[in-house]
Design a protein around this nucleic acid. Structure first.
Lengths: 328, 328
DNA sequence: CATTATTGTAAAAACGTTATTACAAGTTAA
DNA sequence: TTAACTTGTAATAACGTTTTTACAATAATG
């Protein structure tokens, strides 16, 4: 049986309130009484029941992180950063893997509201307006990461400038002299996919490059998608000589497809992408890449969220754009 | 302001208990009353407060997963599997990243007890006896994964047979004709490190191979450790011609060290290890490997934990050894 | 018609905290 | 010495549920 406040009180023959006051240290208690209480707490191994405390205080000291896929490097780093930073502020973190499924994401959101979590870090898989009118309320603070909702409402987010990063990568390709530049991106329900596509398009246009509709691949952010899209591009008569992949998995798939067709990387197809971090150190293909500070994004998101939770005056507009690094 | 049971009751001019009975469907209510309640629930957007429910029911419908490092592929797959399976059983999952730090792990355990989580999946970083006498109690169910405590107490776990797997890998090396076989393993505070070392040793002995103490490397499970240990082995006059690495990161580090010395893999150093899953498809070095079913381990651990939580008669001895696959 | 079942609802107690209010005892000031 | 403060503690009312007990009103039985 677990030890409650009243057990300590009975054990010492004093009232519950006195014990509580000792433990919370908010009010004055005679030194001798305090000492006896602390000893009893130690002896009986009393641990305050956080559930009861939450009910009383109307907060749960818990946040949640919703990500599409925890086995994706970007998301597990982000999650790790968030959980670590949250812990610093005495929050525990509930993990939700939405599996790239909007319905599951929504279901988690509802569960979390009932669970009275104090806030959510959301890497959503859907940018559509109507979906968010229920989510962005004053009831529960949400900080968006990676993908942002496409609404006029105010909301907090932590991200990089995806459009600019994609622009820079594309400009890099153009400067190197590539002419038939393709792009592979994820689902257009996700703003990261859209922004990166736009960055590519803007760079192409502002450098007077011709945009070949055949060279625009829209799929999802997984490796198979990259493989399939590139394989079908390479089946055509006119092949791209370079490609911007909107994330590392698309790039890996694309490279695989090219290699399976007997092409050489980067001679026959030059690939650049986002987030190609080689954790093994064994990949000898060079994939120039914009690396998002994933763990940092998670940390900053958690810190931002905690600010919003604890400080009602925290400015909604105070959003954060982090700088990625270029590795080529 | 959030809507409570009593708000619905007042809105309809009936008692709280009736509303509660409709929502929980446990007792009979007049059809018309039920209908009115359900409409009001919809209209006022009532969502039961899970905190209050937890206090009443004395359970939180929450489990926790403690892992050393979420950015390690094995652990993020495990965590993903656990969270997904837990969700199936209506449990949410709190994520704790211990950062390979026993103190932090312990700290998390204490927090989780206070938080009244219903159970914990623990990938501990310490096997030592005394540490666990507080942890393995009847108070809170724990299911161990990856590393097991080194105690006589009964506890639940889900794992592969590490010793046998290491034995098999080593035997594989011996059969291929390698003679100077090294081993790299993690901290001996972790049973996975110990068991894999023992498997190597047993295989060597039972095949009458000479065990060179210089060829035994004990560090931690991270890539730098693999690099450093292998680098120092390769600095000696007598070099190994093959090595068993106790996980993929050790292997990557070792390969890197060999390559930096100008050696060729696998010609000059044949490397086998645990869990070398190439998510990129771009690694063209073949690393024969025993692959643990990481996600499955997480799923089974969560299912086992839920069984222990809900069914007090669930046999403590009913533990699970999953089969890894060999990929070479 | 009187008695016994059945059905629907309400009131209250509990889960374990904490904050507010109240009050006794001790201390200082007039 | 009486009035006004301090100081330490107790009792109580929340926080939002659910379950138990009790009691009406209605229906079924003799």
């Amino acid at each position: 049986m677990t030890v409650r406040l009243v057990d300590i009180a009975e054990h010492l023959g004093i009232s519950v309130s006195t014990v509580s006051r000792v433990i919370n240290g908010k009010d004055r208690v005679k030194d001798e009484t305090r000492k006896r209480v602390l000893e009893a707490v130690e002896e009986l191994q009393y641990r305050p029941n956080e559930i009861a405390r939450s009910l009383r205080y109307q907060n749960s000291m818990t946040i949640a992180v919703i990500v599409p896929d925890l086995s994706n490097n970007f998301f597990n780093l982000l999650t790790k950063g968030a959980a670590t930073a949250a812990k610093e502020d005495n929050y525990l973190t509930i993990l939700c893997n939405s599996d790239y499924d909007q319905k599951m994401e929504q279901e988690y959101m509802n569960l979390l509201v009932q669970k009275q979590v104090d806030g959510v870090i959301l890497a959503t898989v859907c940018k559509e307006k109507d979906y968010f009118e229920n989510i962005i309320t004053d009831d529960m603070p949400v900080v968006f990461v990676d993908n942002l909702p496409d609404v006029d409402l105010d909301f907090n987010y932590v991200t990089i400038d995806n459009e600019r990063a994609a622009y820079d990568l594309t400009a890099h390709l153009i400067q190197q002299g590539y002419e038939d530049i393709a792009v592979l991106t994820g689902s257009l329900h996700e703003t990261s996919a859209v922004k990166r596509l736009q960055g590519w398009e803007n760079a192409m246009k502002s450098h007077d490059m011709t945009i070949n509709q055949q060279f625009i691949g829209v799929g999802d952010f997984r490796i198979e998608s990259g493989y399939n899209m590139m394989a079908s591009m390479l089946n055509r008569r006119k092949r791209p000589d370079a490609v911007l992949a909107a994330n590392n998995y698309l790039a890996y798939g694309a490279i695989r497809a090219a290699q399976d067709k007997g092409l050489l990387i980067p001679d026959d197809l030059y690939v650049v992408c986002f987030d190609a971090v080689d954790k093994t150190g064994l990949i000898n293909i060079n994939i120039p890449s914009i690396i998002q500070p994933a763990q940092k994004i998670g940390e900053v998101a958690a810190e931002t969220l905690v600010k919003r939770i604890t400080d009602k005056n925290y400015t909604l507009y105070d959003n954060i754009i982090l700088e990625p690094i270029f590795k080529g």
